[in-house]
Design a protein around this nucleic acid. Structure first.
Lengths: 127, 127
DNA sequence: CCATGTGTATCAATACAACAATACACTAGG
DNA sequence: CCTAGTGTATTGTTGTATTGATACACATGG
């Protein structure tokens, strides 16, 4: 459960704290993180990625509000007990829906036929 | 060439001026806008979408810097002469590449197999 | 000429993200 | 007990991004 679990892009337009929350949501939904798993400490994550501990704390706090994580006083943050099991495939696919919609809209503005888009994505998904 | 050509989502995280630039890029790449086409005036767009004229002007200015548009003094903005023709399919697909990469990364974090993702996208692309 | 239409330079207001430096409450383990 | 490890509240600062209000320069067309 080390700090390298999280991928952070400091230059992305999306703020760091939200990158962390979204990533946790997906890792939990897929079952890569399960109930009880202890997360890396805010200081570990901050040190590893050279960011501010409070930024990580903010992300953890938001994840707790959403019910993704729970706080174990003195120990750290863990995946919440309410997250019993990995989501079904349908539920996980639903998390991708907004992105899929936006992609489809852009493809339409580009007047791209479905086929080349699907083929390119298929290629990327296999790596 | 009226102001309804552009779609704007004021509540999206992406800033309005960038929504406009990106959209222009795609409409020009696809040939829906061709060299010489006159764009709706900043005040028309601003009035129609209830946003500030300066926000539209900023978008037009950026698009001009990129060579997408050119300024016809006293008349308005038009699609630049350097944009001779619609891009090839390969070029247009390249504009989607960053979004496709991010989508693939998220699908991997969700441990979603390629098939359901591709099927859902295929459905959305046909509408 | 002048009324009306362009785009835009300038300045201000606001919000947000991230950082920094503390200090605090809590717990596990020696 | 006490040290070292949790997360977090607080305060302040910095940098940046976005949007807005206003005034201006310019060109067109009657």
């Amino acid at each position: 459960m080390d700090a390298s679990l999280l991928t952070i892009q400091p230059n992305a337009p999306e703020p760091i704290y939200r990158q962390i929350v979204e990533q946790l949501r997906r890792l939990i939904a897929s079952g890569q993180l399960v109930t009880g798993d202890l997360l890396p400490s805010v200081r570990d994550v901050a040190g590893f990625h050279a960011i501010n501990p409070m930024t990580v704390s903010r992300a953890y706090g938001l994840a707790e509000n959403e019910g993704l994580l729970e706080r174990l006083r003195g120990k750290g943050m863990a995946v919440a007990a309410t997250q019993r099991a990995a989501h079904t495939q349908v539920q996980r696919l639903a998390l991708l829906e907004p992105q899929l919609l936006e992609l489809a809209r852009h493809a339409r503005e580009l007047e791209l036929p479905p086929d080349p888009v699907l083929r390119r994505l298929s290629k990327l998904l296999e790596e």
